[in-house]
């Protein structure tokens, strides 16, 4: 079991390594992508400066705490898109019958498929996330937790995307549903939960699980409570298993398009 996990981890490591090498062929583009993404994320700080000039409390959070929410949102997004970029375009591969390349390999199909590409700008998101964390306030206690929460958030985000994209095994045009679902997660993640109420708040902790990806982690970082961290981890593991189950259930319906393709 452990050997199998090690082998899969090595595959992901090599996949990312080669993707990085490929991207680094054009260093100017590589670094400008990262730099501009940091700049792009930083621009949204202006929005919060304006909003806090109107009201000094945003849904129970102060400016630094909302900034930390942005950091978490960027960190989870960065982890999901850097390590598992293809989980966001899985339906495209399913519809066009391009999963063959992964099916014929004696490796985990889902892992190979989602980790077969990286998003360079996502590195900018991760860097931005750490900059924001250091502005919020570095501490030996919270730093490992922050990293852990970015990883679990990224895994949850990818899992949700896999679940939604896997609908393409059964329905046509479900890529649109996946796009909407993914944009729901991203858009809600950058606004504090305190501004929402009633049904919306309930939805954010159920159908659109942004609450578990960003809101609970924010509460953990502001005021550490072990049970909240455990909820985060349990939901993360549940979503991973659910994504795995749905993908493999759908894979039985998959039919190849006899498209010649190669992993480069």
């Amino acid at each position: 079991m452990l050997t199998a996990v090690k082998k899969e981890a090595k595959i992901i490591y090599l996949s990312i390594k080669y993707a990085l090498v490929r991207e680094l062929l054009n260093k100017a583009t590589f670094f400008s992508n990262i730099f501009f993404m940091v700049l792009n994320n930083s621009a949204m700080i202006v929005q919060w400066i304006i909003l806090f000039s109107i009201k000094d409390n945003m849904g129970g959070y102060n400016f630094k705490q909302v900034l930390l929410l942005w950091g978490l949102a960027a960190g989870t997004y960065g982890v999901a898109h850097f390590f598992f970029e293809r989980s966001f375009s899985l339906s495209e591969q399913i519809i066009s019958g391009r999963l063959d390349t992964y099916i014929v390999q004696p490796k985990n199909i889902l892992l190979s498929a989602i980790a077969s590409d990286i998003s360079v700008p996502a590195l900018g998101d991760i860097i931005f996330s750490f900059i924001v964390y250091f502005i919020y306030g570095f501490s030996i206690k919270t730093f490992p937790i922050y990293i852990l929460l970015c990883i679990t958030g990224g895994l949850m985000m990818s899992s949700i995307s896999i679940i939604l994209n896997s609908l393409s095994f059964w329905f046509n045009n479900s890529d649109m549903i996946a796009d909407v679902g993914n944009s729901l997660v991203v858009n809600f993640a950058t606004y504090p939960d305190g501004i929402f109420s009633g049904l919306t708040k309930w939805l954010l902790f159920t159908i659109i699980p942004v609450g578990f990806i960003n809101y609970i982690p924010l509460k953990v970082l502001i005021n550490f409570k072990l049970y909240l961290l455990m909820i985060n981890i349990v939901v993360c593991i549940t979503l991973i298993f659910l994504a795995y189950f749905i993908f493999y259930k759908g894979l039985r319906k998959y039919s190849s398009s006899n498209l010649m393709s190669a992993r480069i």
Binding site: N26, A28, T29, S32, N33, F35, F36, M37, L39, N40, A43, M44, V46, Q47, I50, P121
Partner: peptide, 28 residues
């Protein structure tokens, strides 16, 4: 001149979004 124009668009879009879409000019 530069291979990837995408990053320039990100910055442009954020400027328009933050300075023009979410708030009117009077907010600044």
């Amino acid at each position: 001149f530069i291979e990837d124009a995408g990053p320039f668009y990100w910055v442009y879009s954020k400027i328009i979004l933050v300075l023009g879409t979410i708030f009117p000019i009077e907010y600044f």
